[in-house]
Design a binder for these strands. Sequence first.
DNA 1: AATTATTTACTATCCAGTTAGTCAATAACG
DNA 2: CGTTATTGACTAACTGGATAGTAAATAATT
Lengths: 211, 211
Amino acid sequence: MTDLTEIRTEMRRRRKAERPKEILEAAFAEFSRNGYASTTLDQIAERAGVTKGTIYVYFDSKEHLFISMVREVMQASLDTVHELFETHEGSTADLLHAQFSFIYQHIVEDKRRREVVRMLIAEAPRFPELADRYHEEILRPCLDMLRQAIQRGMDRGEIRKSSIVDSPQVVIAPIALVDLWMMMFDKRQPLDLKAYFNAHLDMVLHGLLAK
Amino acid sequence: MTDLTEIRTEMRRRRKAERPKEILEAAFAEFSRNGYASTTLDQIAERAGVTKGTIYVYFDSKEHLFISMVREVMQASLDTVHELFETHEGSTADLLHAQFSFIYQHIVEDKRRREVVRMLIAEAPRFPELADRYHEEILRPCLDMLRQAIQRGMDRGEIRKSSIVDSPQVVIAPIALVDLWMMMFDKRQPLDLKAYFNAHLDMVLHGLLAK
DNA sequence: AATTATTTACTATCCAGTTAGTCAATAACG
DNA sequence: CGTTATTGACTAACTGGATAGTAAATAATT
């Protein structure tokens, strides 16, 4: 085997190896633009630079392509979530500040994840197991971490005793609202994210009432 | 005119007056079950007890039917929001408690509204003006009311001075999360609404930090 | 030549929107 | 009053375009 053929073989292998990812990428773009039902495989194929027949070499059906695409995009968010767990020591207030900072930077701004969430919501009746996967792999770990942080803060006396620890969702709810807001209104009803972030942290830490 | 024909005439008149509502009701049921694109007019017609042709007597197109249906369901929520404005005097904490109570009872439990929100999210790229309408008629009034309540509380000294008043979304974000949660997970990942409501109010009023 | 990746052409089906026509109720008229 | 014309609500059947999936043909590579 000459060097040249070796290189060619390698290119060919890589091409084959890349095809599914290229198709998944195109699938994400088209599905998130038009929704599951209104997206045609021809659109996806054209964007991927292949024809419809090629898609069927790598994926059994439109449904399987959709499921694979969602899992692909979720994987990326999952890696971000794992990073979130590497965060450090310090007072509970500092910890929450650091973690919220991270989340606002990485999760809130991640448009790909948000588009997947949009599809999960839209298609939840048809693909409930995908939504459950999102809960299992992304939401639950975040909530567990948060619950843990609050619990430790209570043990240390930094956090007042309250039953909020049993409903950690309320603490990160403003992040969910950003998703919802962006999905529904995008830039048409603007949201000052910087002010919003500060208000979020402020409310979580101090609440509204005067002491 | 015999009694029989009189009755028939009356039935016919009532029938005509009710037809659009019957069709809209069927449209809601089918659209929310299958999504916009996957719902056929034949499905809607069958549920309404008519044929497809009849739908075209009352509505110009599938798009117009969808838009009319959304407006119809939103109207109901709008009435609820107006009720919300009739709420009373008392300390700001009491006011918030009362308003939140009302919202949890009426908005959070309103499955029809939630299904419409799901469709708004799913179809926002195709029907942005519907999402904007939701903002204009439901979300914004609620946020304005909330902002007003907080401002008055600050003026009275009941509420600490903070920039939360400029981002009132963070205060009702937990309500948005209930929507998101239900839309994605329904009963599969249960949420203890009673505990959640208390945690929400607790966090909004007192925050997490001790002292 | 043999193998593999991809395309092309096709099929069967579905569905929004249309059209022609039915049937009953009213209006017009003699 | 009774007969005929007209209207209004609705249906059944059809059309044309689109589209998921298939399978045979072709191109690329070794």
